[in-house]
């Protein structure tokens, strides 16, 4: 059992931990539990379109953009042009971190330089 829990990903562990915490809160203070459960549900429904868009962008990066293009424009030797692309991109793509991190991860996998992560 403990081995199985150890092998779970960080996300699943966090999710299980939060369910346990919510259940404990439910036992201690039921009205607060209902309040935070409803607001969690509403927030989750609210972010579904944003998440769908994020995964669509991730798919587009994986399917259409070749690593050579990313390496050329956002790689180690892209210079000032890379800075400009990332600065413009970060100005126009303004969203919560959970939309940015998955996209940055895919761009990293395609050869994006670490300095552009920070800039973004």
């Amino acid at each position: 059992m403990i081995e199985k829990i150890k092998n779970l990903s960080v996300g699943i562990k966090l999710f299980i931990l939060m369910i346990v915490i919510y259940l404990v809160i439910g036992l201690v203070n039921y009205s607060f539990f209902v309040k935070i459960l409803i607001s969690s549900y509403k927030n989750l429904i609210g972010i579904i379109p944003v998440l769908l868009l994020t995964f669509l962008i991730v798919f587009i990066i994986n399917y259409f953009i070749k690593p050579e293009i990313i390496k050329k424009h956002l790689g180690n030797s892209s210079g000032i042009k890379g800075w400009l692309y990332v600065l413009l991109g970060s100005i126009f793509i303004s969203g919560p971190p959970f939309t940015i991190f998955p996209i940055l991860k895919e761009l990293k996998g395609h050869g994006m330089n670490i300095r552009y992560w920070l800039l973004f």
Partner: peptide, 11 residues
């Protein structure tokens, strides 16, 4: 990777 972490963080 994303969904369980995002739901956990929202909670």
């Amino acid at each position: 990777t994303t969904i369980p972490i995002v739901v956990g963080i929202l909670m």
